[in-house]
Simulated assay, not measured.
Amino acid sequence: MTTGLIVLQPDDAWQVAMLHAAAFPDPWSAAAFRDLLSESTSLGLGLEQHGALAGFILIQTVVGEADILSVATRPDLRRTGIASRLLHALLARLGERGVARITLDVAEDNPGARRLYESFGFSVDGRRPGYYTSGRDVPVAAILMSKSLSL
């Protein structure tokens, strides 16, 4: 599999939105991604395979902290290491932005993602009951996780 890491730009918003729609039942619009990717406080990284976006990670930073807003891998490429590679690349770049802590929330019914974050040293901080509702008959909790980074 040939993949290349790219820094996502506002012009990539339509590709990001298409991948997000394939990965989640409640997709964000291309306009929302364009706005986020235009912000100096945001950073989006993508992995391309044969010229197409195979996965992405998007964060927003505020005063020494980063929050992972979304991570998605093309459904047919899940469990091939794309999300792991994106997370590794992201963590390597956060020091440049003065980030000392990174946070995220993940659906309680997504054990694969939870294992991924735990393998990178994220720990559970709490739980938001009923946070995720889209595409589910019964809402599920968000698991809040974080990781301290050494600068």
Rank of each mutant, 00 (worst) to 15 (best):
A17M: 07
E96W: 05
A141C: 11
A142V: 04
M145Q: 12
L87P: 07
A22L: 13
S146N: 13
R97T: 01
A52H: 10
A31E: 13
V63L: 14
G55R: 02
A92L: 11
D26N: 13
T80L: 09
L87F: 03
Q60Y: 06
L37P: 02
T2P: 15
S84I: 03
L77S: 05
H50M: 09
D11Q: 14
I102R: 07
M145P: 11
A66Y: 05
H88S: 14
A92T: 12
A107M: 11
L53E: 06
D105V: 00
G81C: 13
G121V: 08
G4V: 15
T3G: 03
V7D: 09
A72F: 04
L87W: 01
S123P: 00
A52C: 13
L36F: 05
S84E: 10
P75K: 00
A52M: 11
P10T: 12
A17H: 04
G126L: 02
A113W: 05
Y131L: 15
T61V: 08
H50Q: 15
A54W: 07
H88R: 14
R79F: 11
A83T: 06
E118G: 07
A32M: 12
L53I: 06
R101M: 13
T61K: 02
L151W: 13
D76A: 11
P139W: 13
L19G: 12
Y132S: 10
R78C: 12
R34C: 10
F120H: 10
S119G: 12
A52W: 03
I59R: 02
A100F: 04
L53Y: 09
D67M: 05
F122I: 04
T103M: 15
R128C: 10
L149Y: 13
T41K: 14
Y132R: 07
E108G: 08
G95Q: 08
D35L: 10
L53Q: 05
M145A: 04
D67F: 10
I68G: 00
A13T: 09
A30C: 04
R93L: 11
G126M: 02
D35G: 10
I82G: 02
F33M: 02
